[in-house]
Structure formats: structure tokens, C-alpha cells
Design a protein around this nucleic acid. Structure first.
Lengths: 336, 336
DNA sequence: TCATTCATTGCAACCGGTTGCATCATAGCA
DNA sequence: TGCTATGATGCAACCGGTTGCAATGAATGA
């Protein structure tokens, strides 16, 4: 190996004729080094294509500059893989990157809470990003007890002492329902996801308020909850039609499920939107190309990701707790 | 802070009345420590809920036990968010996890190659997982020169000296085309993705061979390439029909694009599969619920992910270069 | 001109593990 | 009984940075 490239700050120090402290300070842009010295050292480092050892740095500084995105093992059958999820992840990654952080993706089992300790106490990560959909109360408790920094996507809007970023699910549900009302629908069904998810509850509230504002009240026969699965989309439509054959509008809190629902409607000879108008949620890429193209509520995934990243980092640095809500926008296509 | 929990191996050493070397060895299950001593130390560590410092460990060992998944910034407009991608990622994460590795997701710009050095030389990661679709020759060259461990998803099947895992794209293309032939179609179009992508080329080869085996040859008017975007799906159908109005079968190398194509066919009054039979690729979750449900070629995403992880780790440990191909399976639904 | 301040730089300890080598006690063997 | 092979443990150096404090020299002010 004639690879005499400088590999540690000591090597750089030799080349520059200074001590390693000075090199360390120069590369960290400390004001304690003279301007020309700093310049010279940095130039040498550049020529040598020098990269500081990250583990050593972490060890000294006591922080990893890594954030974990906590997920469950993804199963194609019961989760619909959002464009949204990928978009958001992309936003998270670039938001973190801009601040010099890296994104670690970890999978945890729903019943295990030990991962908090494993990742935090070992210094592998500085903080966590969780998704409300896959995040139980016990997880939150564990995180709080461990004094961890974390931020949750889609948490309840209620009072809590942790950071969160959510879509404006209430507004989204409201605008979707109002749109259906404006289209002259009077028997509007609500197909939620799991009833326990805060996102779903908020969207329901929006649905409820929109109806109330229009002088109507909610008919329980028109409301149904279930998993966010395509199979359920089909089943729910069947059940809904049995309970309320005069259904003429449908607000589904997931595009994928909405598309499955539309398929079932069609299979039963009902035309969309003529017989039943349908509004989805998420604006998945395929929504634009469904039959008919789906009217839906769009959330800005990259923005969400960026905010998650920024708020978490802010919490790491300052301890500030922020709760942000990003707007929901109705995208009108042909299904309603 | 009365938090007197043991935080370093030295604390454990005190509690156990041994030296820190012994603790280190005990926790690493070294055969150099006596059995009872090892037991005792481990028990104490458990009681203290002790976690070794990862940065310190990395610094000593010179490895990070972290692998980077290299992605480009995700843009909803020109990339179709695969279920496959998410599934594969999940497989990668659990494959890595089983071997004690973590998954870091990094975004790089197509023109930048410096990230290799930044991540590798700094010791932040031990190796890389790349996707052929977003992976230029210069990236590969840089990786090779840096002597990095890496594995590529969907690389060419040709001869190369790096690890790769791919779907059997040739077989997939062949089986899809054969299915269309079996359905009595004689004017079968090929809608590929970007012509430069190895995956696409292989699928085309399968298409070509299937036709040849059936005594037909490829009609260039039936073949078209373009980006994997939904908008292109629509446009390509228009173009194809102009060039060959007698089109009666269509093999599209992406489900999402295929769904967009079917929509356009329908818009032009052509029935699927009666007038034009369509076969897609990927078996996206929505494929089952498109109109009509899409016949497609399925790849096992979780398996792919697991193999990517395992082969990379094997390369890290032994330097072994493996090239694996996973099977492609035809899923017959109603579109063909 | 001398004392004092300030800007630079170096020294050395520290972060928390790993590991080669020395040490030591014990068991095995002649 | 004396000597060696062997297993268990400790010592101390090392991984590559960061940082408090001391030291140095020059510039400032009286």
C-alpha cells in the first residue's frame, strides 16, 4: 500500500506543521484559529480528500447526528403503500441532510419497547420519527420516560408534550364532505380507516361538522370503519349499500381503498359519479388514473417530511416542543 | 440526577469486581472468560439495562455495522411509487437486522459521486445498496475505485465483478408475452420503461424470444420506450395505436403505467381484454383492483430485500461476489 | 519603556470501547 | 515434588477525534 493519503487529523497536522487540536478546530470552523492558518489547513485537507472519522467524532461529542424513522415490518397485504409515505420519507431525508443529520430506518415489533433504549442509550441515534398509525401509547410513554427526542406524524391535535406534525385532517374531511354536498349529494357515506387512529377520527369530525353546517345530521348507517386494506374497501361498500341503498356519495379516507370501492360500485352496476360520487384521501399517484380519475384530498408529503425533520432537530438542539399542521387541499377530478 | 445506572463497561466492571477487559470479553461472548464469570457479568449487565456505546465500539472495531440504501430525491411526478420499493426496503431492513446491521437511507444527486468517500471513508457506513434504475456507470466506477462493498438491485445479468440481485426479467418478459400469445393475440405491443435500464432490456429480450419461439418476429411499430410515468403511459398508447391500429395485446413493464394505459384504451372505446389484452409488471397492490384487475408479473420484494442484505453482508465479511436472480411469477387476473 | 490584554496555538486528558501481551493460579504430568 | 501446559484475568496501549487550560508572542495602553 503506497496509499499515503492522510487518514487522521494527526496526519493533516503533520502536513500543516501544527498540532491536532488546531486541525480539529480549523475543520470545525472554530474562531479560535487564525484565519490564514484555517485556510491553509482546510486547503490541505481538501487536497488530501480528508474525511474525519465519524465514530471518533461521535464518541467525543456524545451525539450521533442520526435520526431513526420507526416503522413496522411492511406487509403488502394489510398496508397500502402510499406514494405519500415515500414522498414523506424523501422529505425527511432531505430535511435531515440539510442540517447534517442522517436517516436510519428501523423496524420494530409492536409489542417491543426495548428498542428505545437499544438505539438511544447506545448512542446510535439522537432521536426518533414515528408515525401515529404505527405508534401505541406505550411507545410514547417509553419514549417520554427515556427522555428521548421524538416527533410524531399524524398525532392527535390534542394537548401533549411532544412534537408533532399532522395534516389538517379535520379540514380535509370537512372540505371533502362539503364538496360532495355541493355536488348535490344528500346520503353521503363515510368509510374510515381504523377507528382508533387519530387521523381517521379527525377526518370524521370534519365530515360531521360539514353535514351539521348543511343542516344535516350523521346517519350511523352511513358510517363504517375498518382496516386500510383494499379487501375491506370492497366489503365495506357491500355493507354500506345494504344498510343504505340510497347512498349517493362516499368519502373514503384513503385513495387506495377508494379505488377498490369504486371498482365494487361499478361491479354492482352503479356509475361513478352519476349514481355515487366518491372522494378519496392522499392523492396517490394512481388517483389521477383511476376509473374515473379520483377526486381526493392532497397533503404535501415532502413538506411534511421536511417539517418532521426540522422540528425534531430543533427539539434536539433547544428542547422546543412544536405542533404543526399542514394544509389539506381538495383536488377535484371526475369521481365527484 | 440520582440515575446511578451503569453507563460504561467500567461501571459494570466495578459491580462485578473484574476489569473492564473481562467485561468487554464477557459481553462479546469471548471464549477467553470463564463460564461462571461470563454468566455473572451478563446478569449484572441485564439488571443494569446496560447498553454498550456504539460509537466507542465502532471506533475500536473500525466498522459501523451500518449499510446505506442509496436513493435519489423522490419526485412523485416522474417516479411511480412502488409497492415493490417499500416491500423491498422492508426486506432489506429485516435482513440487515438479523445480522446486526442497521439501514441508513441517503439521497444523492445524480451528478455527485463524492458521497462514496463521504460515507465510506468517514466510517459512517460499511457498504451500500443501490438500485440499478438510479445508478450510473460513474457511480459504479467510483465505488469500485474506493474499494467499497456494494450490491445492486436489478443490475445487468452480464459479467461484472460486483454483487447483484435481480428479478429474472428475461423470464418475466417471456412468460408475460407467452401468456398473451396463448390468449390468441398476434399483434402484441411492448411498452418498456427507459431503454437504457437493464431491467427493461431484459424484459424486452424475453418478449422477443417468446415471439420468436412462436414463429413471429418483432414489429418495430409495436415497440416503444419512455419514462416510467403515468403520463407517458397515456401518450404511448396513443402513439402505438397510430402506428398499429390492429394492436390486440400489450405488455407494459410497469403496473402503474399499465393502469394508465388501460384507462386510455378505455377512453378510446377499446375494451380490455376483449379488444386489447394487457399484462403489467410488479404486481402493485392496486393491480388487483384496477379495472379490470390486472394480469401482471410478480417479484418477491421481501425476498429481494433479504437477499440484497445478506449478499452485501457476505461480501463485507468474506469478499465473496454473488449474483442472484429471483423468480418472476405470472399472476393471471382479468386484463389478459 | 513596561505591564497588561488578547489572539493563537499546543499539551494532555477524556470519550468508551477492544485487544496483544504479561501475569498468575491451578491442574496435569513425569 | 518440581516443572510445564493451560485457562482466566488484568494492564495498558490504541482507535481518532474534542476541549479545558496553559503557554506563547504580539499589540495595546499608560
Amino acid at each position: 500500500m503506497n496509499d499515503a493519503r492522510a487518514n487522521t487529523i494527526v496526519d493533516i497536522a503533520h502536513l500543516a506543521g501544527v498540532s491536532k487540536s488546531t486541525v480539529s478546530r480549523a475543520l470545525n470552523d472554530s474562531p479560535l484559529v487564525g484565519a490564514e492558518t484555517k485556510q491553509r489547513i482546510r486547503e490541505i485537507a481538501r487536497q488530501q480528500r480528508f474525511q474525519m472519522s465519524d465514530p471518533a467524532r461521535r464518541l467525543s461529542l456524545g451525539q450521533s447526528h442520526v435520526v431513526a424513522l420507526v416503522t413496522y415490518a411492511y406487509k403488502a397485504d394489510d398496508t397500502v403503500p402510499d406514494a405519500f409515505m415515500l414522498e414523506t420519507m424523501s422529505g425527511i431525508a432531505s430535511g435531515l441532510h440539510a442540517e447534517g443529520y442522517d436517516l436510519l430506518v428501523i423496524q420494530v415489533s409492536p409489542t417491543d419497547t426495548d428498542w428505545v433504549r437499544r438505539y438511544l442509550q447506545s448512542g446510535r441515534v439522537d432521536g426518533f420519527i414515528l408515525l401515529a398509525a404505527s405508534c401505541t401509547a406505550s411507545h410514547i410513554q417509553t419514549l417520554t420516560e427515556a427522555n428521548a427526542s421524538f416527533v410524531i406524524w399524524g398525532g392527535a391535535s390534542g394537548s401533549h408534550n411532544y412534537c408533532s406534525v399532522s395534516g389538517d385532517n379535520f379540514a380535509g374531511g370537512k372540505v371533502a364532505t362539503e364538496h360532495l354536498l355541493r355536488r348535490g349529494r344528500s346520503r353521503i357515506g363515510f368509510m374510515g380507516g381504523p377507528a382508533r387512529e387519530p387521523e381517521v377520527r379527525e377526518r370524521y369530525r370534519g365530515y360531521e361538522v360539514a353535514l351539521r353546517d348543511a343542516g344535516k345530521s350523521v346517519d350511523p348507517a352511513l358510517v363504517t370503519y375498518g382496516p386500510f386494506s383494499l379487501a375491506w374497501g370492497t366489503k365495506a361498500v357491500v355493507a354500506l349499500l345494504e344498510q343504505a341503498s340510497d347512498l349517493d356519495g362516499l368519502f373514503v379516507t384513503s385513495d387506495a381503498v377508494a379505488i377498490a370501492a369504486m371498482e365494487e360500485l361499478r361491479a354492482r352496476g352503479l356509475r361513478v359519479p352519476d349514481d355515487v360520487a366518491v372522494v378519496g384521501y392522499d392523492d396517490v399517484a394512481l388517483a389521477r388514473h383511476s376509473a374515473p380519475p379520483l377526486t381526493t384530498v392532497r397533503q404535501n408529503g415532502p413538506l411534511a417530511g421536511r417539517l418532521l425533520a426540522e422540528n425534531l432537530i430543533q427539539h434536539l438542539r433547544t428542547g422546543a416542543v412544536t405542533n404543526v399542521s399542514i394544509p389539506a387541499e381538495l383536488v377535484v377530478r371526475e369521481s365527484a
